[in-house]
Amino acid sequence: MFTLKKILSAAAVSASLTIGLSAVVQAQSLGTPINESQLQGFDLIAQPDGSGYPRGSGTAVQGKAIFERRCVTCHGMTGEGTSTNTRLVGGDMQSEERPIRTVGSYWPHASTLFDYVQRAMPADAPKSLTSDEVYQVIAYVLHLNGIIEDSLVLNKETLMQVEMPNKDGFIDSSQAP
């Protein structure tokens, strides 16, 4: 009797489990299909291979005005910074002393500058620049670092070709144990 009762209750449990599980299986497809074109104003990811850059263009000459209007309170008149993490120019990874690491000396990809300024800067009004303004102001930051001429028209194609001084300075450790 004792055993039988046990078996019965186990059966009851497994029956309710089955119901529970099938409900769960149904619940597992609740995402709504969407297509990439619906994400154009949402997806800000810009990669080194040129994917994700919006249309637009600009030169450092144009960017200087934006920089002086929108960036200097925190980054200084010529990008010298107002603190260690707001310095945008200078440094040398091979310097004798502890290297100063900035956009110019440290960053391996110019795409990161586009990606970051578009998503996070200016820090007091992120995402308030147009795509043209982002191209212009990052052209100016690259020019301040001596990486591009101030006449270069920066756009999706030319940005992909910008070579950063420390482009070979990184080691991918993502698969380390």
Binding site: M93, W107, A120
Partner: peptide
């Protein structure tokens, strides 16, 4: 993507000046 917070920050520059 090489976001700013996985290049400029949160990376480990070694003594040989290569950065992990």
């Amino acid at each position: 993507t090489h976001f700013r917070d996985e290049t400029s920050k949160y990376t480990d520059t070694r003594l040989d000046r290569k950065s992990q």
